[in-house]
Structures are given as C-alpha cells and as structure tokens.
Amino acid sequence: MIDLESNLRNAGADWRKRSLDAIRTSEQRIVAMASPAPATFVIPSLAAIVAVGVLATVLLTPVPTPPVSSQKVAVQAPPAITMAPLPSRPGPINPPSEHRSTLVATVEREPADAIVSLERTADALAPTDPLRAWQHYDALYRTCKRTGDARAASFRTKAMSLARRLGDSTWTPD
C-alpha cells in the first residue's frame, strides 16, 4: 500500500533537488551582478589564460557582417542607434575594427586583465550603447562558460538584462 501524501512529498523533494542541482551545476546561478569589477587581478590561473586565448580567438575570427536591418545608425546629431530585435542566437562578438584592435592588443599585452578590461568596457558601454555592451557580455559569458570561470553567471545575467532592454524578452545565450 502506498501513501499518496508521502508520494506527493517525495515528488516535491525530487523537484527541489533538481532545481537546486540545476542552479548549482549550471551557470544560472546569479552572482555579483551589481558588484564592480575587482580592482586587482590575482596571479593568472591556467583557466584565465585559456579563457583569454579563447576570447582572443573569438575576437580574431572573421565574422560575417550582420544584416543591415539589424543595426541602423542615425547620422544626425545627437548620435543615436536604433536597434532591431536581437537574433534568437546571436553570433560571436563583432566589434568595430578599431575597437577590436584595441581589445586584441590588450589581450596580447595583459592577458590576465583582458576579461576584467572587457567587462569594464562593457559596463561603460551599457548606458549609451546597449547593443555593443550586450555583445561584449555575451562573448564574455561564452568564454567564461567554456573555461568554467565563475563569472559566467554574472555575464549571462547582464547579457539577458540588456537583451530585455533592447526589446527581446525571450533571448537567452544558450
């Protein structure tokens, strides 16, 4: 004879375990969304170096120019950018060439600080250029996720937050 009440409790406990496991084991744990980037970066770990390498690869990989309709730049002052809805699965980061060269130089000279530097750039871009900021966070998220960097969750949340601001309420980086 099986008791319905205890079975309902078991079913609930199983769901709770799954939800907590999902949060623990995936990048979905939200951390440090509001915290500023650390002022100093400790000795670069192997994971950090790999992360920077992957990020540099992402930045150096030629990517197709996005369709014209995805980004329209207004030419009259004050400069403004009108964004179309984000693609459901955005491609890798595609910054303008002059910005890219700066980023690559940063990666080559100061690999340990590259992620921190990129995050600061993205934080600075967020109020005025959410699309580029979103691209930065998305790329940072993917890089950190690949290397198991704990900051992945923070970048994911920021990317999702910006996607909402840009009008796409369903976009997720996964």
């Binding site: 744990r29 939200i30 951390v31 440090a32 969304m33 509001a34 915290s35």
Partner: peptide
C-alpha cells in the same frame, strides 16, 4: 544596496 552576495 547592491550587495552582490546578498543577491546570490
């Protein structure tokens, strides 16, 4: 108050 650990 923007305490990140509290948000976690």
């Amino acid at each position: 108050a923007n305490d990140a650990s509290a948000f976690a």
